[in-house]
Design a protein around this nucleic acid. Structure first.
Lengths: 196, 196
DNA sequence: GTCTATAAGGAGATAGAC
DNA sequence: GTCTATCTCCTTATAGAC
């Protein structure tokens, strides 16, 4: 792990706990194990560190990567498909990185970084569009009841995201099981609602 | 409006925009129209201002107060009841105060204030317990399908809260109509799922 | 790439006059 | 209750040696 990488991960850790304004460059330097001025050798300003965190997260965390080939082959069994996708999703959200990033995003989503603003809605949009497509297909092939696929996508992912907020917010890993249970309960409820 | 009240409302305004650490006492004083030291005549510290905001909000904003007598009499028509409750809820959440408080809560929910911590879950609990009771009654009287009332409560309020986060986050009032439409779509979907 | 040293200013908070 | 004045500490950021 290079110093630059250490700065990014340490900053994510501190920012997610104390917020961007609540964390000083001094604090980051101490935690990384270098002097304050050494930070400025890797980032021209504190803002640049925050920018790097958002950029890094956007790359590594995508719901699309959960859609592996063997999962997609299961689409003819919609309930199985949803159960398996949800399990993968909760597992991804349980990682320390995703928990920390969620906290950071909720705190700083209003902050303007180089003209851009990251928001919860942005984060949802990718997952939403994936499920829009999936439900569209399922309706076309008459696997589920007739409905607006866009609405179904929201009804499916909204509770999942709330479960994330309620159970997968802090650093401790102990809530993963409870989150999984709540999420699968939702899948069952949702399936009864859309099943023909 | 007394100076003390002005300090509280101005602080909520600034905290919700820039966060607690991103707002200085100096900034609050300037906006209120007094000197910095005058603030300390009303609050012994900056933290006390934040505490006062949370306390004030807890008093004035409660889902229980939406349950007026004429609404409760409508419980025998569950769909009507849900439609009307939802309309009142979205209207309450659309107020400037509720929008600002939502932003503040999401930013500062991890902060410890006198040993206590305010969280999204805390905020949900009140509404959740109300709907737990309502669905319990509806099931007993066989107005809706057999199910765990606790699960139904979550399935009902989770999407509503997500709609709040997506549409009723910033200060502009222009999203109320879109929020209302999304919320009522959810009510319809939910009703089809629980209707006998 | 990391260090020491330091600049320049903002932070929270208090003392005491009016 | 509000003012002026001030204390002390911490903040981001830079200059220049090694």
């Amino acid at each position: 792990m290079t110093t630059k990488e250490k700065i990014i991960s340490t900053s994510l850790d501190l920012f997610s706990q104390f917020g961007y304004d609540g964390t000083s460059v001094r604090q980051i330097a101490r935690e990384v194990g270098v002097r304050e001025s050494a930070i400025y050798n890797h980032f021209s300003s504190k803002q640049e560190i925050l920018k790097a965190i958002f950029t890094a997260y956007k790359k590594e965390s995508s719901s699309a990567q959960l859609l592996t080939d063997d999962l997609i082959n299961e689409l003819v069994f919609p309930l199985n498909f949803m159960v398996n996708f949800t399990e993968k999703l909760i597992r991804q959200w349980s990682s320390k990185n995703d928990r920390q990033f969620l906290r950071l995003l909720l705190k700083e989503q209003y902050r303007v970084i180089e003209g851009k603003r990251y928001s919860v809605s942005d984060m949802l949009d990718e997952t939403r569009s994936i499920w829009w497509m999936i439900f569209d297909e399922l309706i076309k092939h008459k696997f589920i009841k007739e409905a607006d696929p866009k609405d179904l996508a929201n009804e499916f992912i909204y509770p999942l995201f709330m479960i994330r907020m309620e159970y997968l917010f802090d650093d401790s890993k102990s809530n993963t099981d409870a989150a999984m249970e709540a999420a699968q309960k939702h899948v069952q409820f949702f399936w009864r609602a859309i099943n023909k």
